[in-house]
Amino acid sequence: MLPGATGSFSTGLICGAAAVAAGMSPLASMAIAAFGYAGTAQLVVVQLATTGATLIVLSLAGLVVNLRYAMFSLSMSRYLTGLNFRQRLVAAFFLTDPAFALSVARFTQHPDEGHRYAFYMGATLAMGAGWFIGVALGTALGATMPASWQIEYCVPLTFLAMVVMVVRDRPTAIAAAVSGITALLAVNLPYRAGLLAAATLGIVAGYLAESWQRR
């Protein structure tokens, strides 16, 4: 569980610092981390808000970044059976990438695991602790850093690290290239609508590339 927690810690560090750099108060920075509980989407939404995106564009962008949780939610609902409403509510709210990855690995290797909900909550608590410590530290440090440090540039650099991790084959590479070029060409569209255009075209391009590859 340690890799999950340290990953969440460093994401939290960047998220806290970026929120303060964007002009959020320390309280708001902690609140968005607690209620949203989603690092990547938070970075996207906060960054878009500082560059003049409308509420609709940044809501859609946040939703798109979080779409993977719908897939995790589907998968977890198959494993975590027999829970009451309150337990399902808690499981849904705290669904994260590391908690999902750890739980799926465990439940596949040990199909007879009798305490699935407890295992899942243990995984999510370990990573949640890393996340909140990271956010608190990032918020505290971010508030003391002068603007000339351009700490907000950590955000696109974080995305860069992520895109390198997710581009694994030709269709994902094509999706990434189409998206990046479209975003540059459409950068002067109002309300940052170019982001949605770029993401949509990227998804379509990846999908088509995969279809052609299969023939």
Binding site: V64, V163, A173, A176, S179, A183, G202, I203
Partner: peptide
């Protein structure tokens, strides 16, 4: 394709 298509649009 969502992650590969979202991040470059933010990075570039």
């Amino acid at each position: 394709y969502v992650p590969a298509a979202v991040f470059p649009a933010l990075i570039m």
